[in-house]
């Protein structure tokens, strides 16, 4: 039977088949491409800093973008001293082997071959600043903690490190050299960034970085180096322990 209605129906059926096959072909090709690209990224050989180079590039791009909006005027919210936990969590012990005593010295490398050596009393002679803020760990927990010390910006001024303050980064290393961080200068110059020697109004315990540690509220805890041995200035990114383990170098909050 050559009914025109049935002819038309066959034509429609052919059109449905054609378009279904076309669409699903494109669909599967695109999905396969997506899976392929993802697996390629996932299995991209990690560079020395333990992350896929593509993802490191994205970290750096994010850093550039969010640095544009960074303002050192914005401070971590201040809490009351009574809100601070009595026992601040101890989460890392890299670079903390053995105990330190008063023979400790802070070595400030003004430039290669020119090192300033300071005692704890030199740091304590600076105006004391107290910060009570919500300390944030990269792991996802946070704690209101109460710290005291010298503002990093006061320290630079007092020791006439003005030309150093125009450099891009500050590097810090523990006395044993096993833990090290780099922080960008704008974050270091933020008024809550401390060369810290007190926790809850008392000298830092050994496991919290006695005698001197960094408190830099605009960064995750991984950047708050405990037990500062050497401090130096650089326009290149100083080496950074957790960045080498695949974490974001910037880690800015």
């Amino acid at each position: 039977m050559s009914d025109p209605a049935q002819e038309k129906d066959k034509a429609v059926q052919r059109e449905i088949s054609r378009r279904t096959i076309m669409s699903f072909s494109v669909f599967f090709v695109c999905m396969a491409l997506g899976v392929f690209l993802f697996l390629k990224l996932y299995h991209e050989p990690a560079s020395a800093d333990n992350v896929q180079p593509t993802l490191r590039t994205v970290f750096k791009t994010n850093e550039k973008l969010f640095s544009l909006f960074y303002s050192k005027i914005r401070q971590a919210r201040s809490f009351k001293k009574k809100d601070a936990v009595p026992n601040a969590r101890v989460n890392g012990d890299v670079g903390m082997g053995g105990t330190l005593d008063t023979s400790w010295r802070l070595k400030v490398v003004r430039k290669p071959g020119d090192t300033l050596v300071l005692t704890l009393d030199d740091i304590k002679a600076l105006p004391k600043t107290e910060v009570v803020f919500d300390f944030k760990c990269v792991e996802g927990w946070s704690q209101v903690t109460y710290w005291g010390g010298a503002r990093f910006s006061d320290f630079l001024q007092k020791y006439n490190l003005v030309s150093q303050s125009t450099m891009k980064y500050v590097g810090m290393i523990t006395p044993d050299g096993t833990y090290y961080v780099g922080n960008d200068m704008p974050s270091m110059m933020q008024p809550q960034t401390l060369l810290c020697y007190e926790l809850n109004g008392k000298p830092l315990p050994q496991n919290q970085g006695y005698p001197l540690r960094l408190i830099i509220p605009v960064k995750y805890g991984i950047k708050h180096l405990k037990r500062i041995g050497i401090m130096y200035f650089s326009n290149e990114k100083p080496k950074d322990y957790w960045a080498e383990q695949g974490y974001d170098y910037y880690s800015g909050l």
Binding site: V51, T54, V58, Y247, D248
Partner: peptide, 14 residues
């Protein structure tokens, strides 16, 4: 795999 998670999260978020 925290560092892996962060690396992928802060890429795919875009």
């Amino acid at each position: 795999h925290l560092s892996t998670g962060m690396a992928f999260h802060f890429f795919f978020m875009w």
